[in-house]
């Protein structure tokens, strides 16, 4: 199969995933207990007629499939609905705040990859030496520490005590550093482990012996050959990791009082603002699927066996 046809298959699959997530989100919210109308108006002052009118106005009296069909057609027209709280249209709001979240996700990802791959490789090369033990500790902390906890810890150290970096806000690169660290830490933990394991495996492969027998230096053997092979399985983790990061912004944006869609959804959940929740989840699903698609395609760039398998 050619690269193009492979990419087409992947893209088709992605569409299915997006549609699936749309249906799933809609079902879950539909089945959720609690009446969204009651959260919009104060039931102690509203008459039953008012509630009924509002419900009809929002189309919530329609059967499930009609509601879904309407929602779906609207989405195809780029209409994600309006906020129940302040009637703002959902999509523009998401689009306005998305860049901030995207930047946070990307910086966190870059950070987690840099730390993860570096420590993972060093820890495999210097197996059981102090640097390996350190890297494994970092990995363990990264995986087991909740982000809000490490976020608060970073604020305490670098903002409150050292006063090096701002603790909150979303203006300027300085505000980006601490949240990216807190968020990237989790991914770094996973990547360290993955890269370490896969490096240790690769180093035992026969071709490493050949490379040494050719008289290549250890530096070339490790960083040119072993690392490239070890990264292949690590890419999957990195891809999944980006999703994790996006999810993590919900907490981190709140902890660091940043703007972003993580923050929007957190607020929307508090307020039971269903169209916003729906919109953000659906939007993130699309982004997630796109990222995964890119990761998948990047496989074939790094691994010729995927690229040219016929």
């Amino acid at each position: 199969m050619t690269l193009i046809s492979k990419a087409l298959v992947r893209i088709a699959n992605s569409f299915v995933s997006v549609l699936g997530s749309l249906i799933l989100v809609f079902c879950i919210i539909y089945l959720l207990p609690g009446d969204p109308v009651l959260s919009m108006i104060d039931p102690s002052v509203a008459t039953p007629e008012m509630i009924e009118n509002l419900r009809r106005e929002l189309g919530l009296d329609q059967p499930f499939y009609v509601q879904f069909a309407e929602y779906f057609t609207a989405i195809l027209h780029g209409d994600f609905g309006q906020s129940l709280i302040n009637s703002d249209p959902v999509l523009p709001k998401i689009l306005m705040h998305f860049p901030a979240t995207l930047i946070l996700t990307l910086t966190s990802t870059v950070f987690s990859i840099v730390i993860g791959v570096t420590l993972g490789v060093l820890s495999a090369i210097y197996r059981n030496k102090w640097i390996d033990i350190l890297a494994r500790l970092v990995g363990l902390f990264g995986i087991s520490m909740p982000t809000f906890w490490s976020g608060i810890l970073l604020i305490l150290i670098f903002s409150v005590n050292l006063n090096w970096l701002p603790a909150m806000g979303s203006d300027g690169w300085k505000t980006l550093v601490l949240p990216s660290l807190a968020l990237g830490f989790v991914g770094a933990g996973l990547i360290i482990r993955m890269v370490r394991t896969s490096m240790l495996e690769v180093v035992n492969e026969q071709f490493i012996v050949t490379l040494r027998a050719k008289g290549l230096s250890e530096r070339v053997v490790m960083y040119r050959h072993a690392l490239r092979n070890a990264l292949i399985p690590a890419i999957t983790i990195i891809g999944m990791n980006i999703g994790e990061m996006m999810a993590g912004t919900v907490v981190i944006e709140t902890v660091f009082s940043r703007q972003g869609i993580g923050r929007i959804i957190a607020d929307a959940i508090m307020a039971k603002d269903l169209p916003v929740i729906q919109g953000v989840i659906f939007f993130s699903a699309i982004v997630y699927v796109i990222i995964n698609l890119l990761v998948d395609l990047s496989y074939s760039v790094i691994d010729p066996r995927v690229r040219r398998s016929h």
Partner: peptide
């Protein structure tokens, strides 16, 4: 110089 038993395993798969 040295050559080995499994030629497939003896080359790095991701380089030409």
């Amino acid at each position: 110089a040295m050559i080995f038993q499994e030629p497939m395993a003896a080359f790095d798969p991701v380089f030409t």
